[in-house]
């Protein structure tokens, strides 16, 4: 029986325009809509597929955020057994080093055989969570995984490489895997089932105490990319534009 832990977080939903907070170092949380990190959603699906195929127990750990309850109940409705929410000062300023330490602290207690998390997230400013957690737990890590099967003390993970190459790797447990895609796309779960879970499932809330963000990057300034004034619009008919282009190429030493 495999004890699987999934680490999931909510990230900014890009359906809304992002705004920068007055501090100038973070996103404005007030207007932010949060959504489960797509890759964490895949990690969740992979965990539930493993449980359905080879048995085991799935625990999901998520930091507190607006919508985290709903996310956890939805994952429970899909088949997760245990829900943990980390409570702490996760508002602005937290980096992945701090989050990974909090994740590792909670995961260690559970003595997991396998830890699955998304390979990346759109708000990763200081590296992705997976390798950091692996470091803090003293486990091995393999990322960009798109399929896992468990056999005894080891798992076989399919790792994607650029250029359409796939490697099958045998990884000794316990280990952390960064999931690129689950074997199947994340499933749909009817709202009635989620509502049922809200009534029956419990979320275990755990205080994380002081967050240790050391080693991570600190944001000094966050801003929208500034347009450089390097573009020159060429006016005139085809002949004139072509002549001007040739001139520019000559100036640049290209012809």
């Amino acid at each position: 029986m495999t004890n699987i832990v999934v680490l999931a977080k909510l990230v900014p939903d890009l359906v809304e325009e992002l705004e920068i907070a007055e501090s100038g170092t973070a996103l404005d949380m007030e207007w932010l809509r949060l959504i489960i990190n797509e890759f964490d959603n895949h990690a969740t699906e992979q965990a539930i597929i493993l449980k359905e195929r080879s048995g085991g127990e799935v625990t999901v750990i998520a930091p507190e955020a607006e919508g985290a309850n709903e996310m956890l109940y939805t994952i429970a409705a899909k088949g997760a057994d245990r829900l943990i929410m980390l409570k702490g000062d996760f508002e602005d300023g937290i980096n992945n080093h701090a989050l990974a330490r909090a994740f590792a602290g909670a995961a260690k207690e559970l003595k997991p055989d396998l830890v699955l998390t998304g390979v990346q997230a759109n708000d990763d400013l200081d590296g992705s969570v997976g390798p950091l957690v692996a470091e803090y737990l003293g486990m091995s890590y393999v990322g960009y995984i798109s399929g896992v099967s468990v056999s005894g003390e080891t798992v076989v993970a399919r790792k994607e490489y650029p250029g359409g190459l796939i490697a099958e790797m045998e990884v000794t447990l316990p280990a952390v895997l960064g999931i690129q895609a689950g074997e199947e796309p994340p499933r749909y779960v009817a709202i009635s089932k989620v509502r049922q879970m809200m009534k029956t499932a419990t979320i275990d809330e755990q205080e994380v105490g002081d967050l240790d963000a050391s080693g991570g990057a600190m944001v000094q300034r966050m801003y929208v990319p500034e347009a450089a004034e390097r573009a020159e619009m060429l006016e005139g008919d085809e002949e004139e534009v072509a002549a001007r282009l040739v001139e520019i190429f000559k100036e640049a030493g290209l012809v």
């Binding site: 959504i35 796309p185 499933r187 749909y188 779960v189 009817a190 709202i191 009635s192 089932k193």
Partner: peptide
Amino acid sequence: LLAGNIPTELQSALEFSQR
């Protein structure tokens, strides 16, 4: 839908509606 037998296209429309 309860059995999870649902085409992916439809799934996104439902998720969008919910969200």
